[in-house]
Simulated scan of single mutants.
Amino acid sequence: MFISDKRVVRDERLIAFEGEIMSEEEAAERGLLDEDKPEEQEDKPKKKGKAK
């Protein structure tokens, strides 16, 4: 069993809601198992170069 730990929206379409329970097969079909948490990486501020 797979439980979505967050709401997932792609291209303005709801893929999974937070707490949704589904089979591992269904999660794979929705592309939820392939994620290496790219959203968390995007949220991190990028390092800025020093002003000269």
Rank of each mutant, 00 (worst) to 15 (best):
P45V: 07
G31N: 03
G49D: 01
E42F: 04
V9K: 09
F17G: 09
E26C: 07
E20R: 04
R30Q: 06
E29I: 01
A16Q: 01
R13H: 12
A27F: 00
G31Q: 01
M1I: 11
L32Q: 05
K46Q: 07
G49E: 04
E25M: 06
A51E: 02
R7V: 14
R30D: 05
F17Q: 12
L33A: 08
L33N: 08
E24V: 12
L33K: 05
K47L: 07
D34S: 12
G31Y: 00
L32F: 11
D5F: 10
I21H: 06
R10S: 09
E39M: 04
V9N: 09
L33M: 13
K47M: 05
I15P: 02
K52W: 00
E20D: 10
M1Q: 11
K50T: 08
R7A: 14
G49V: 07
A27T: 03
L14E: 13
M1V: 12
F17E: 15
D34W: 07
M1N: 11
R30V: 05
E42L: 11
G19M: 11
K44D: 10
E26Y: 02
D11I: 03
P45M: 07
F2G: 03
E39H: 03
G19C: 14
K52V: 11
I21A: 14
E25A: 15
P38K: 09
D5V: 07
A28Y: 00
P45C: 06
P38F: 01
V8L: 06
G49S: 06
D5P: 12
R13S: 12
A16H: 06
S23I: 05
D11N: 15
S23G: 14
K46Y: 06
A51R: 06
V8W: 04
A16F: 04
L33E: 06
V8M: 01
F2L: 06
P38N: 09
E29K: 14
Q41A: 15
